[in-house]
Every structure is written in structure tokens, then in C-alpha cells.
Design a protein around this nucleic acid. Structure first.
Lengths: 337, 337
DNA sequence: TCTATTATTGTAAGCGTTTGCAGATATTGC
DNA sequence: GCAATATCTGCAAACGCTTACAATAATAGA
């Protein structure tokens, strides 16, 4: 007794109208006489009719779903962006197909293709490295794709992020101004442009401004995990670093705890400035000073931008930079400013 | 010059076969002569043909996508489950439509309906409270729905979780055994069965076992936020609580930091046992002792269970309970065990 | 009252695949 | 060399809905 699914045809028959009319009322088309509309609505209600979105997608060539490629949902930074994305998506009646990529280029390409095969109306990509193959896929796709919290050095893809280079530049400059000479730069993989071409570049700029020579020994390249940061303590003290700019909060929490556990107290003996201002910065002790960035908004704005692109609305600026700032918390000393 | 999408028909024409044959090779149907298969494959490659999943979904009545309802991706506990879900889903060639519900019953019902309208092949629900309305939707749906890390007291819905009641019972018993008389119970909303019918019940059982009277003053009902926990300090000390079992890690971190910041040091003057063993427990200082539960696996097993349900495979046990355990870390004193 | 308009509604052709059935080929056994 | 089987292929009908375009009904103007 498999309950038969009720189709638009059933509704039409019951209501004594054509399916075109039913379709119209379902889609809020105004060209329907109020009386007719009510009649149809009643039948829909009675039959508990639910339009089949797949059929609708086939016929209209719109699925009202967008794909979201995320490195790892478990990473609070990306999860925060994802939340912004989903909220706005919902607001515009879109759903999100979420897939983890682990920043694996092959997987990213593959996932993008299945997303496109599913006819998503658009996609939002989060990831710190747009590989050439991926870039190629982006280019040949007619589906709008926007980057969120990520950068593509070629600046050819719509994106929403902050000015990473300037932010790091300013953040490091502040530490330098406070007298720290040995400020380490610890980040994720340097083959990711966001780390090499933006953050590291900003770091170098700050150094240059302060007239300090760039010392490669102070640059630490690791993965984004807490443990990786934690394990950095020895190496950090070995090169006499007395402060560090860290490219990720979880990573930063790791180096902070690693230092503290080794008896090098933060911030007294070692300052730390982290990058993402996730809630982790508040939970950890001492709390971490950080570059601030509107995480939720990056996602939200990216999604909003995507809606415009999907509707072929004109977009003034395809590469939006949201404002960043700084919060001074416990992992940094309170000298001037 | 809108690039025309290439359809199965184009491939058929080019390859000089019928679309049925193309369909067969695309779907790996073995009834195709190798030579024909190769010919088709070549054309597919040359034309860069990508099957339209929507059309496929309409025709086959399968979308290979499952819906996932999550309270909030930003919550590390649920995000961890989600990761397990997505990995297994991907392994079985499914995609995930992820939507945040904020544990809002109305939103949950609404979201479930749009998911079903999109013809997902199954759904995984995370949330601590299955409202009657939602339950009703579950019941009338022919689409399999499994609960992950969540419980439905009626035990009528397939689910994967741990035995919350037993875990809390044991955890609190351990604290009691160490001599704590005033163990507080702090959790999220008590109108959520997981808190009232499971955790609180376990707490009461432990009390009973130890011959200690249940004191309602020791029960704290809040929301799951860090801040809520942080703000609990005064109330907690007001009732002379000397330890607490907390139902959520972020909440627990809040309680711990609140106490510590108020000069009540954990664990010397106040013990804390938390529930979810997320990475937060390791990042915080002191680290938090916790009930351990296989977060990733709960999601993974739930998804695996769902695949079976979607394929009408027989399932021995529709309500799987995964094992839990305990880790002693810094927020708890190291007395016997 | 009659015609020109405008508001409603119906017709039917897709949308791109899957699939049951039937026809066409190729194999195998004698 | 021929019938009986086993393999391959092609046909064409769905799948459930959207949407030009055509048809019909309602309303307005003269």
C-alpha cells in the first residue's frame, strides 16, 4: 500500500483546472482569479500536495540550491563562514549542498564537478589554494562561483574576504613597535597563496617598515592543527622568538599552550597575535589578541553576492574586501595601544 | 554564444547509438559490448558530457543526496558529527544538503519539508528535541530519517548515539565517590529530553546510589553558550556547589573560566566534568575531564545506517548505542581513578 | 449591443534521463 | 547449416513540472 505521491496533475483534476493553473498558484503567479486560486489552494491543502523540486528543477533549469565547498566543517573558522552562508541562503530560499574538501585539490575538482552535475545554481568556494586545475574548472563553468574567506591571486574570481596582507602588515607592525625584534611568523602551508602572497608578504612589509631584516628562521610552516602549534615550542625558543603572528586560531592556541606548558609564559615572555577572531580566542587562557574579521559576514556577503550573480544582476565590485581590525586580549602585552 | 549544454542525446548521435545505450555505459550497465562502450566513452570524453543529475533524479526517483538538519554548524560537537556524516556519505556517493535549525521546532519542520520536496533519499536529524509536530512529519514521511547524537524518547525513530543516561550516571557517580557532596548539574534546556529524561535522570540515579538527596538548587538550566556558562559562577557558588557535571563542552568551558576568573580554581576548589570530548576540552586550561564519545563515528554510523535504510537492506538494530568512556584531564582531581 | 481590450485559463511541447519491452545480433550445440 | 540461446541495442513511454502560445471569458468604451 505504497502511498501514491500526489502530483500537480492530481491537484488539477480535483480542482477542475489545468495543471498550468495549479502551477501558477503554486508559484505565486498573479494572473489567477482569486476564486480559482482559493479553490486550488484548498485542494492542495486537502491532498497535501508538495511540488516535486526535482521536476521543477528540470523544467525551470533552476534548483534553488547552491554548492558550498569547505575545507573542513570542523574548523571553527570555516564553520563560522558557513553559518553566514546558510543563513543568507535560507533567506533567499536557497539550500546548501555542503562538501568537505580537506583542501585537497583533486577532491575539490571532483566535488565541484558533482556539484555542477547536480545543477546547483551557484557555488561558494572556501579554500586557501585555487589550484590551476580548479581554476580551469572555474573558468569553463557558466555557473557563478564566489570565493569566501579565500583569495585567488589572479583576482579573476568573485570573492569576499578581508585584506589579509594589510591586516598582517599592521598587526606585525604593532608588535614590532612595541619593541619585539624577533617576531615569528607561523602559518599553514606556504604553497597556499593566502599564506605566502598575502600574510607572509604583509609580515615582510612590516619588517621592512621597521628596518628589520627578514630572517627565514622565524618563518614556520605547518598544518593548521592545534597539535602542530603545540609542537612548535622548541623550535620557536630555539630561534629566540619572543613573539609570533599566527595564521589560524586553533594553531595559535596550540603554540600558546605549548609555550605556557613549557614554562614560557604568554604574554610576559612571549606574545601571540592570531588571525581569525573565532570564539576560540575567548575561551582559551589567556585570551588571544587577534586580528578581527567579520566571519559570519564574509559568508553572508559572499552568499548575497552569489545571489546577485545568479540573477544576472549588475554587481559593482566583484572582489569585496570587508573591514578588519584588532582586539587586544591577554596574549599580548598592553603597551601603547 | 551561450555554450550549449551537451545532453545524452548529443552523445548518442555522435556515437551513432541510441541514448539508451549511452545511458547504459554511463551507469555502468554491463550489457554493453566493450567496443560500443569504448566508442561511447570516447565521445563522452570529447564532448565533455556530464549527465544532468536533476533529469536523472526525475527519471530514476533517486537523487543521491540526503538532507542533514543540524542545530548549528558552528557548534563543534555537531560539526564533528557532520564531518562523519559527510565522509561516509561521500564514500557512498551521496551529497549532503545541510541546514541549520537553531533547534527551532518550527524551522525544523519547515526545513524537513523543503528537504523532502527536494526529494532527498534520506535525512539525518540532529537536535535534542523532537517536537510532536516534527515527530508527526517523521511518521508520515516515507523517506528514511535517522537521528544522530540525538534521542527520541519514544525510540521509534532509527538513531545513533551513546547511552546518555548511563554515561552521566557513571560520571556523576565517580565524582560522588571522590567525596563531592554538592555536585551541580548544568545543562541546556530541560525541555529537551536529552537533558531531562536522560542526563538529569542519570544524575539523579547517581545521587540515589550514593544516598544523597536530590537538591533542585543544584540544577542549572541554561542555553548552550560559552557566555551562559561563564555567567553561572555566582549562582554556582551561592549554592555551595563544589563540582559540576556539564552537558556541553562550550558551556563547560564557560563555567570553568568563570570560576577560575572569579578566583575559584578548577579543579582544586571546583571540579568539572563535561560531556562531549570535543577538541575544546584539550585546548582549554586546565584541560577538561570528559565523558568520551565517538563523535565522528556517531555521524558516520548514522549515515551508514541511513544508506541501509535507503536501500531497504535489513537492519538488525535501528537504535544503535555506541560506547562511551571517560578521560580524566585537568578539570578534575586525580583521586582514586 | 458590439467590438476592442484585458484578465484568465488551457494546450502541449519540452527539460534530460531511466527503463521495460521488443527487435536485432551474435553464439552455441548438434 | 539451422534452431535455440544468450547478448546487445533501440524504442518510446514515463518522471512531474514550467511556460510559450493559443483560446476563452470578462470588462470597458462607444
Amino acid at each position: 500500500m505504497e502511498k501514491q505521491t500526489v502530483t500537480i496533475y492530481d491537484v488539477a483534476r480535483e480542482a477542475g483546472v489545468s495543471m498550468a493553473t495549479v502551477s501558477r498558484v503554486v508559484n505565486g503567479n498573479p494572473n489567477v482569479k482569486p476564486a480559482t486560486r482559493k479553490k486550488v489552494l484548498d485542494v492542495i491543502d486537502r491532498l497535501d500536495y508538495r511540488p516535486n523540486a526535482v521536476a521543477r528543477g528540470l523544467a525551470s533549469k533552476k534548483t534553488t540550491t547552491v554548492g558550498v565547498i569547505i575545507p573542513d566543517v570542523t574548523n571553527i573558522y570555516f564553520a563560522s563562514l558557513a553559518r553566514g552562508i546558510d543563513d543568507i541562503a535560507m533567506m533567499y530560499k536557497y539550500n546548501i549542498i555542503l562538501t568537505n574538501s580537506d583542501e585537497n585539490s583533486g577532491k575539490e575538482v571532483q566535488v565541484l564537478n558533482t556539484l555542477l552535475a547536480k545543477q546547483v545554481d551557484g557555488v561558494i568556494f572556501m579554500g586557501n589554494n585555487v589550484s590551476p586545475e580548479l581554476k580551469a574548472e572555474f573558468d569553463r563553468s557558466r555557473t557563478p562561483i564566489v570565493l569566501a574567506g579565500s583569495v585567488d591571486p589572479t583576482n579573476t574570481q568573485p570573492s569576499v574576504s578581508i585584506d589579509y596582507k594589510a591586516a598582517v602588515h599592521e598587526g606585525v607592525a604593532r608588535m614590532l613597535k612595541r619593541g619585539y625584534k624577533r617576531v615569528a611568523f607561523v602559518s599553514g602551508p606556504l604553497d597556499q597563496p593566502i599564506n605566502s602572497e598575502y600574510r607572509l608578504a604583509g609580515y615582510k612589509d612590516a619588517l621592512a617598515d621597521a628596518g628589520i631584516d627578514y630572517d627565514e628562521q622565524l618563518v614556520f610552516e605547518t598544518d593548521y592543527s592545534y597539535q602542530a602549534g603545540y609542537d612548535l615550542q622548541e623550535a620557536l625558543t630555539a630561534v629566540d622568538a619572543t613573539a609570533a603572528f599566527v595564521g589560524d586560531d586553533e594553531l595559535a592556541a596550540g603554540v600558546m599552550n605549548g609555550m605556557n606548558d613549557a614554562g614560557i609564559s604568554v604574554p610576559e615572555q612571549f606574545e601571540i597575535l592570531t588571525s581569525n577572531d573565532t570564539k576560540l580566542t575567548e575561551i582559551v587562557r589567556p585570551k588571544m589578541s587577534s586580528i578581527t574579521q567579520p566571519l559570519y559576514d564574509i559568508g553572508a556577503v559572499a552568499m548575497r553576492l552569489l545571489t546577485k550573480l545568479m540573477n544576472n544582476e549588475p554587481v559593482e565590485n566583484k572582489n569585496v574586501l570587508l573591514p578588519y581590525g584588532f582586539v587586544k586580549r591577554g596574549s599580548t602585552n598592553s603597551n601603547e595601544v
